[in-house]
Design a protein around this nucleic acid. Structure first.
Lengths: 350, 350
DNA sequence: TTGAAAGCGCTAACAG
DNA sequence: CTGTTAGCGCTTTCAA
């Protein structure tokens, strides 16, 4: 084991005061004489003493830490979210424990247990399924305030929702207006809200336009890059293939683009593409890719604030639901479908 | 405050055994009768008991946690590193505390303090400067094993080094061989190893080729995207401008590409580009961008293993230095410089 | 204003 | 094999 760390005892001895006094200095209480305070501070500095957070938290009965469990925390877009959360929380004296579940139920349960053991005070959460009993149970066993990110279950938690339905509807309207009819939607399992909402938005647009849709073009199973890649490949082999793809997941665009490129197809001449979330890839691709975008930094700030209110103030109020808009950023990755383009070209020729 | 959490006491009472016995069950000791063990396990389950990690760790005198402090942990390439570390460490029962310093000294000191308070058992570290006395002091005050990532200071720590010098040399050789002479190198401050090594490799190549280099084309201040963007813009305004850019930082490529595009220049016709680290952007750009690549997952595995050896076994051995190769992946972002290309074209015309 | 003392929940050493 | 007990380092009464 390592060299022993200096404790509050040793500081007290060195300063010639009782251990309680050192504790008071540490916690900034005013009931300590200036001369004694100075002596204690000297001793702390001389010894390079750092309070043992483990002991502090145990004694205090809380950890001053909040957990944040997402599918994956290394996506650049989520960086902004996490940073915003951290900023708000840090100024309130909380630290953050990050947990990436890789969207695996097993891992989620494991992590929930670990967070429970660490006695986190609050949790920001995105689960892999909104229909899993055991997951819910574990989560409720935590007995701490939870803020859901883009989930609505359990219903008694505060939740931050992105309006995927409306923005996907806009995206489909846009593609329909370009003349597309076979529009593929790739997204996660409908057992989670964002996927379900995207499908709803997709259907809305077709219904509004009075165009019949092909349910085979709605592929809902996973939000991963891998899924985007495979499914695009599969759909591109269909006869007839889709003329446009909506990547309904923040990590999915690279997969779709890779598949399109491997097939030797060009964007937007051969196939139109719309991504979810902005990224360097979307912005700097040739052509730049149109995307569905929402403000993750704002989301992070609000999530942290909601949690803080529960943590510090009234923790018993009714659950709150806050919905955040998303927008369609039109760039150069969509064009009329090839057949149509050809038809028009011919018309012009005549 | 929240509802009281169930303690080991209550489990003991419910199972009708002593608290010591519950502890033994928890810790998987075999000296517990099967019938009693079953009773305890029932009680644990019934009550939904989770051990208080705070108390456990305090009593045990260590936290079974290792810190990992990097500039930034949300870059996709670092994801692989962190995941590999996590995998090795988790199977040894350690958890990971992530800390992103944003490359700010203030923040680094703050985080080092926080990690110290949390009594982490080990640390994987990349600091913003290898010449900062106070930083070093704080780090040594931790009194725990440290594995450095791409840093060599302090010298008594194990270190994992990437061979930037050789691979940058290869990259410059390659560009020279294409006919480039004005090659820009953008990287961080030379006060940190990777930047210094890259500059060395750059000079090596010029010296070997017997070509005179223009020191004004070596820009060393930051590894950020922002720096890559600004500096590319600045250099592109120079007369004469560089004909090739090496982005010497894992986050820098998007900045360089954005600047090039804003100037209305084409890659590789007008300017050649080489990035550091592979990425979706590099791979899926048009044209795909040539990069300097090394195996971050392996790096992570090795880092964790080095640390584990110090943690579990002999912590007093001499510091180890492990150097990892990097390779130049040639794709489509480099071509002979425009002037040269034109000259050749003319020659062909004649 | 300061010191003494009682635990927070748990592990481990020591008895039986 | 199981119960009892002494702390881990700290905060927080309660006295003085």
């Amino acid at each position: 084991m390592g060299a022993e760390r200096v404790t509050i005892q040793e500081v007290a001895k060195r300063a010639g005061v009782s251990l309680g006094t050192v504790s008071r200095v540490l916690n900034g209480q005013k009931t300590v004489g200036p001369e004694i305070r100075a002596r204690v501070e000297r001793a702390i500095c001389d010894l390079g003493y750092r309070p043992n957070a483990l002991a502090q938290n145990m004694r205090r009965g809380h950890s001053r830490a909040v957990g944040i469990m997402l599918r994956e925390f290394t996506l650049p877009v989520l960086a902004g979210f996490i940073k915003a959360v951290q900023q708000v929380l840090r100024s309130a004296g909380y630290s953050l424990i990050l947990a990436g579940s890789d969207d695996q139920r097993e891992r989620e349960i494991e992590l929930l247990d670990a967070l429970s053991s660490r006695r986190i005070d609050g949790l920001i959460l995105t689960t892999s399924s909104e229909a899993d009993e055991e997951l819910l149970e574990r989560q409720e066993a935590l007995q701490i305030p939870v803020v859901l990110l883009d989930r609505t279950v359990p219903a008694n938690c505060d939740a931050l929702l992105i309006d995927h339905r409306t923005v996907v509807c806009r995206a489909v309207e846009y593609l329909l207006s370009l003349g597309h009819r076979r529009i593929a939607l790739l997204t996660g399992s409908e057992s989670v809200r964002p996927a379900a909402e995207r499908v709803l938005g997709y259907r809305d647009a077709f219904a509004q336009a009075g165009v019949e849709l092909d349910p085979d073009l709605i592929r809902t199973r996973s939000f991963t890059t891998e899924f985007g890649y495979r499914e695009t490949l599969v759909l591109l082999s269909r006869r007839p293939p889709p003329t446009a793809f909506i990547a309904g997941g923040i990590a999915m665009l690279p997969g779709v683009l890779r598949a399109v490129r491997e097939r030797g197809l060009r964007v937007p001449d051969d196939v139109s593409v719309i991504g979810s979330c902005d990224s360097d890839l979307a912005e700097l691709s040739t052509p730049p890719v149109s995307v569905l975008r929402w403000d993750y930094a704002r989301l992070g700030r609000v999530a942290a604030e909601l949690l803080l209110e529960r943590l510090e103030g009234d923790r018993t109020g009714p659950p709150r639901r806050i919905t955040v808009e998303a927008e369609l950023i039109i760039r150069g990755s969509c064009a009329p479908p090839a057949a149509l383009a050809k038809a028009e070209a011919m018309q012009n020729d005549v």
